[in-house]
Design a binder for these strands. Structure first.
Lengths: 217, 217
DNA sequence: TTGGAATCTGGCCGCATGACCAGAATATGG
DNA sequence: CCATATTCTGGTCATGCGGCCAGATTCCAA
C-alpha cells in the first residue's frame, strides 16, 4: 500500500520517491523519443528503466499524471535555460539574439525533448479550448518576447513593430527550424539557420534611421 | 469477399470505391481534428460517417493504409494549392510573397488539416530515419524555396543569401505561426503575422544596394 | 534487533481496439 | 428479370493496454 502523500502535501516526498519519479520521467522521455508515443506503454517504460511495471503505478497516479509530469519538464526546463541567458544581456538587440541562441543551444543538447514533445502534441485534450501547449509554451513565450520588444521600443532601441505579431513570428521561426531538425538532423544546418534568424530579426526591428539596417557591418 | 483490385492495379477503381475512400478519409480528418488521434478509432470514424465499421476494413487494407491516405491528402493538397499561386508570379519577390500568402490562405480554410497533421506527427515510424513528413513535406518545400532564391540571386533580384538555410527559415516561420494558430486561433493575428513575415523576408533578401530595404514604400 | 512503514514484484482483470468473417443487401450487366 | 459480382452489416475474436492487488522485500526509527 502506498501512503497518502499526495493530497495533503504535508511532508516533502522521500528521497526514493523523488529519485524514482525523476528516473521514470527521464526514461519515459527517452523511450517516447526513440520509439514514438504510440509504442510507449507503461510496460515498455518499465522495461527500459529495468524496473517492475507496478513501480510506475506506485509513484504516479496513472499514465495521465506521468504525461503531465513529462510535459512539465519538457516545457519548463528549456524556458528556465533561455530566461537565464536573456537576462544576462542588457540591450534589446542583445536580448533578442540571446533568446534565439539559447533556444538553439538548448535544442542541440536535447533532441530527445523535441521528439517527445512533438509526439505528445497529439495528446491535446479537445474538450478544453486552451490546451497545455498554448497555455504553458506559446503564450508565455509570446508575452516574454512582446515585453522585450515593447521595452526596446520605448527605449528607442528598436523600431515600432507590432509586438505581439512579431513575437509570434520570432518564436515560430525558431520552433519551425527546430522541428525540421528534429525530424532529420542532417537536413538542416542548425547554426546557419540560427544566424539567419538572428540577422533577419535584427534587421527587421532595427530603428529605421539606423544605417546598420541596410548596410551590413 | 472483396475482389483483389489492389495488387495488379488492373482495372480502375469503381465509382463507389473512389467515393467511399474519399468520404472515409474526409471523415477521418475531421474526426482526428475534433477528438484527437488517440480518441479516433475505426469505430468512431464509422460512427461519424454513418456507416458500418466493416466498410473501412473493406475499402482499406487496414488502419495503416488509411493513415497513409490521410497523410497523402494532408501533404499534397496544400502543396498543389501553393505551387499554383507561386507560379502565377514572375518576379522573385512576388513569388516569395505569394508563397507566404498561399500558405496562410490555405491554412485559414483548413484548420482541420493542421490539427490532424499535428496529431499524426506522433505516428512517425522510429525505425526508418527519414519519415514521411521529412520526405514529403519539409524537404520538398526547402528544395522549392531554395530554387526560387537561387534563381532570384542569379537574376540579381535578391541578395546572395544561404539559400538552403533561408529556405528552412522561411518555411519554419510559416509553419510555426500556423502551429500556434492551430492550437488557439484567438491568440494569433494571422494576417498581421503573415504581413510581418512577408516584410521580414523581403527586407532580408533585398539586394544590399537597394534603398527599399531600409526605407519603406 | 525488531516491528511497522515504505517500496517493489509479477501477475491478473476488464476494457477498447483493429482485424476478420459469414451472410445479407445491393448494384450491374446480359 | 435474373445471375453474378460487389458492397455492406453487425458481430466475434485475439491482442495489448492501463489499473490494480496480494504478498515479498527493503528501509528506518526506536
Amino acid at each position: 500500500m502506498r501512503p497518502d502523500s499526495k493530497p495533503g502535501g504535508k511532508g516533502r516526498p522521500s528521497f526514493i520517491e523523488e529519485a524514482r519519479r525523476r528516473q521514470i520521467v527521464d526514461t519515459a522521455i527517452k523511450t517516447i523519443a526513440a520509439l514514438g508515443y504510440s509504442a510507449t506503454s507503461l510496460a515498455e517504460i518499465a522495461r527500459e528503466a529495468g524496473i517492475s511495471k507496478g513501480v510506475i503505478s506506485y509513484h504516479f497516479e496513472g499514465k495521465d499524471e506521468l504525461i503531465e509530469e513529462i510535459l512539465s519538464r519538457l516545457l519548463r526546463e528549456p524556458a528556465a535555460f533561455i530566461k537565464k541567458r536573456v537576462e544576462a544581456k542588457t540591450s534589446t538587440q542583445d536580448k533578442l539574439a540571446a533568446y534565439v541562441d539559447a533556444n538553439f543551444e538548448f535544442a542541440k543538447g536535447h533532441r530527445d525533448y523535441l521528439l517527445a514533445l512533438v509526439d505528445l502534441w497529439g495528446r491535446r485534450n479537445p474538450t478544453q479550448a486552451h490546451n497545455r501547449f498554448e497555455s504553458e509554451a506559446y503564450e508565455p513565450s509570446r508575452r516574454y518576447l512582446s515585453r522585450i520588444l515593447e521595452n526596446g521600443c520605448r527605449a528607442g532601441e528598436v523600431a515600432a513593430v507590432p509586438a505581439k505579431a512579431m513575437a509570434s513570428v520570432i518564436q515560430a521561426s525558431i520552433d519551425g527550424v527546430l522541428l525540421q531538425w528534429a525530424f532529420d538532423p542532417n537536413a538542416v544546418d542548425l547554426d546557419a539557420c540560427c544566424s539567419e534568424i538572428r540577422q533577419m530579426i535584427a534587421g527587421h526591428v532595427a530603428p529605421k534611421n539606423d544605417s546598420r539596417a541596410a548596410f551590413g557591418t
